[in-house]
Design a protein around this nucleic acid. Structure first.
Lengths: 209, 209
DNA sequence: CACTTTTTGTCCAGAGGTGTATAAAAAATA
DNA sequence: TATTTTTTATACACCTCTGGACAAAAAGTG
């Protein structure tokens, strides 16, 4: 019942997310972010606590929007190869259609923060490990329902998938052609026995560069 | 016939390279680098011109030391699959044995500078494209001497190799086990038809994590 | 010694930013 | 009106840094 906040917190986090995504975390000072939001530094600190806390909020929000949400929707009946193929196609399209070619926020910040920032670095490390865990779980589902062979190397296959994802995220900063990114994904997934030929292209034909 | 420089320029570039590699370019101010070198800012500017010029010198020096030098040694008789396999093994070992897990200087700086710094960003973009070109040339050699099939998709295969390399560079910031990195490389190379089973392990058995 | 190059130190004028504290004003509700 | 929360503005004390200019000192050679 006190004064209402002047700005929409969700919208503010979204704006900060894009600034950090485009310019990197270190380049986004509290002063610069406050100005971008049209509020004073005092209001920024009152609303978000600190730049580090804001970053954690940004990360959380980012993960509600990333293509890899679908990896958490897997159940015993999910056709995993189709899901993975669709997922990587979605990643390629998302990265290729981004006008700023910003890549992936989390992957961008690995270079910047892991081994450098004692608080945020480990957060990003955990993000990568969680991603590998999730991919492994997805592969376990595939093995359980006979889609792929369980050759006791699912962890390694999950690592290779995460590597493909990370690589695409960085490569897309430089290579902007969806077709080229898709060819990388297709080749690597095919080699891992995970490419689904009949996968939906989600109603969009592959775009030419 | 004037005064001699007080410091060894090569050694200075090496020191700066490690600082930038470990902390990122933006974090390395002229003041900090000068202090690290034990010289004044004036001497820094006199010797290197600018921080951007220094960075270009650092990059050039870095590329004289990176594992991918071997890709330029290919001639018509080179067994390409062995060379590529050895190369990726070397990359995995180099990254895994780095006590700081610094990854790859050039790849680290992509996130930081591409799309952000108008001068240095394009330099790094060109580096990536040059890497793809070089891999494509290597694959053309392999096709010419019958090691692999020339299916008119060598450019795409080169892209997939570059993606593997970039992925490993970033992944190694988080995953420090050489064995795990090697498994990623092996799986992906195998899938691309480029893994050489009899490749030398360069007299070091794979280290366990 | 003269000449040259490098190093040093200082200044300029400016730029950018930090977290914390505090008081007043503003906005909302009862 | 009183109460509460948010916003604003300001101060503190400090920090960090920039490129360029310039003069003097230092170091090396002829």
């Amino acid at each position: 019942m006190g004064r209402a906040a002047k700005f929409d917190r969700e919208a503010a986090v979204e704006i900060c997310m894009h600034e950090i995504w485009r310019n990197g975390f270190e380049a986004c000072s509290v002063k610069a972010l406050s100005e971008k939001l049209g509020i004073t530094r005092s209001s920024f600190y009152n609303a978000f606590g600190s730049r580090e806390d804001l970053f954690l909020e940004v990360l959380a929000r980012y993960f509600t929007q990333t293509p890899d949400r679908v990896l958490g929707t897997v159940d015993a009946k999910t056709p995993v190869r189709r899901l993975l193929t669709d997922f990587f196609k979605d990643v390629c399209r998302t990265r290729a259609t981004d006008p700023d070619a910003k890549g992936c926020l989390a992957v961008n910040c690995i270079s910047e923060l892991v081994g450098v920032d004692e608080t945020l670095g480990p957060v990003l490390e955990n993000t990568v490990h969680a991603g590998i865990d999730r991919l492994e779980a997805v592969l376990e589902t595939a093995a359980a329902n006979g889609e792929i062979e369980n050759d006791s190397h699912l962890r390694e296959k999950a690592l290779a998938l995460q590597n493909l994802l990370i690589g695409l995220s960085v490569l897309s900063r430089v290579v902007h052609s969806e077709k080229e990114l898709l060819s990388v994904a297709k080749q690597t997934l095919t080699g891992l026995g995970l490419y689904d030929e009949h996968s939906s292209s989600t109603s969009h034909p592959a775009l030419t560069e």
